[in-house]
Every structure is written in C-alpha cells, then in structure tokens.
C-alpha cells in the first residue's frame, strides 16, 4: 500500500480498535517524545507496555519495563517503534515470531522502512510509518486544534470535553486524507529522492 499518505479511515480504524500497545524504545526521560506519547496514549485508555532492555526493573508511569517483545507474555494489538530506521528490521523480525501476531506495527514520525513494511504486510499486519499516534489521535479527535493545527476534519456535533482516561470520538468527517496535499507531495518526493540515491 501507499505509505506516503494514509486515509483517515485507515488510521481511525487502527486507533479505534487496538487496545494493547507495546512501545519499543520507550524512554523514562520525561522530555523525550516517547515518554509523552506513552503518557498520552495511557491517558486515552490504551493498555501501554514499555519495552526498553536498559530499564528493566524500573517502571514507566506504573507500567514495568519489559526487555523485549518476546518477554511481554501476552498478546499485543500494536507495536509502536520509537527507534530510528536502522533498528527497525530486527524489531520487525521479532514481531513476526509473536503468536498471535500483532495487528499493527506503527513507526514513529521520521521513521520509514519500506522493506520492513512489505514484510509485515505480507504477514497480514497493518503498517503505519512516519506518523505519531498522539498527533493522529489529537488530529482525528480535533484536540490538537488547540495548537492551531489543521485537523483536516469537520464536525457539527458538540465537542467532547477531554478528561483523564477518556477515549475521544475519532468519528469526525474527514477532508480526504491524513495530511495536506502539499505536505503529502513533499513526503512523496523526499521518499522518491531517498530511493533514487539508495
């Protein structure tokens, strides 16, 4: 599938259906994006599992760190990869040994690995790359609009009041895709340039 841009329906379905999320590369440092994405998703009701071999024995917001995906010991719906692209393939190879398989592998903003994506998709696993689930959740719920961000969604229904632990409705009507036409165009071009050089 096309990973330069995603339909909102695709992202919405993932965020509406996954419950258990293992975050590979979760950081205990509260200024790292992995920390506050972990925290946000936990506050929105996801069952979060922090994966970081260097932090085993400690916990993140009350959730004990786990050394690797194999050691979680229960099924996960989604793996959120907070590692740079060169670390992706080994993580994906482990993900493909899990039983049951995860339904979704999500790679963070700035992380893209087309070969890994093809491998996952061949096993029936949905893939999202170069996106942030916190930004996407905030966008589809329009919560991110507080920062002046174009949510690319409209709604004539009363907005929810976000409170701790509450799932927000992501079912606003979408304006044709996850990002703007211009931003998509550039993402596509950048990826093409990268592949041409490679």
């Amino acid at each position: 599938m096309n990973h330069d841009s995603y339909n909102d329906a695709y992202i919405r379905e993932i965020l509406n259906t996954v419950k258990t999320v293992a975050m590979v590369g979760a950081s205990p440092q509260n200024v790292r994006p992995s920390y506050f994405v972990f925290k946000y998703l936990a506050e929105r009701g996801y069952d979060m599992i922090p994966i970081n071999p260097g932090q085993v024995g400690k916990s993140l917001l009350g959730k004990p760190f786990v050394a690797s995906l194999q050691e979680i010991g229960r099924p996960v719906d989604m793996i959120d990869i907070f590692r740079s692209a060169e670390h992706v393939m080994p993580i994906v190879d482990i993900a493909l040994t899990l039983d049951p398989l995860p339904k979704v592998v999500w790679m963070q903003l700035g992380v893209r690995h087309d070969e890994a994506a093809a491998k996952l998709e061949a096993a029936g696993i949905k893939v999202v790359m170069n996106r942030c689930p916190k930004i996407e959740y905030g966008r589809l719920s329009s919560e991110i609009q507080w920062m002046g961000v174009n949510s690319r969604t409209l709604s004539s229904k009363r907005a929810p009041i976000p409170t701790q632990g509450m799932r927000l409705s992501l079912n606003r009507s979408s304006l044709g895709g996850g990002s703007t036409a211009a931003a998509d165009r550039v993402a596509q071009q950048n990826n093409k340039d990268k592949n041409d050089t490679a």
Binding site: R158, A159, P160, I161, L175
Partner: peptide, 25 residues
C-alpha cells in the same frame, strides 16, 4: 466518515469550529 473534500465555501464556514463542548453554543 467519508473522504469527500469540502469546497472552499464550506471550509470558510466550518473549518476549526465545532459546537462548544460545555454549552453547545
């Protein structure tokens, strides 16, 4: 839920605005 792209006039009226969460204004 659909991916229809609204026109300029629709965005000029609606984009960014939603009935107020507490009062419904």
């Amino acid at each position: 839920m659909n991916d229809r792209i609204p026109g300029f006039g629709t965005l000029a009226v609606h984009a960014g605005a939603q009935p107020d969460p507490t009062t419904g204004a």
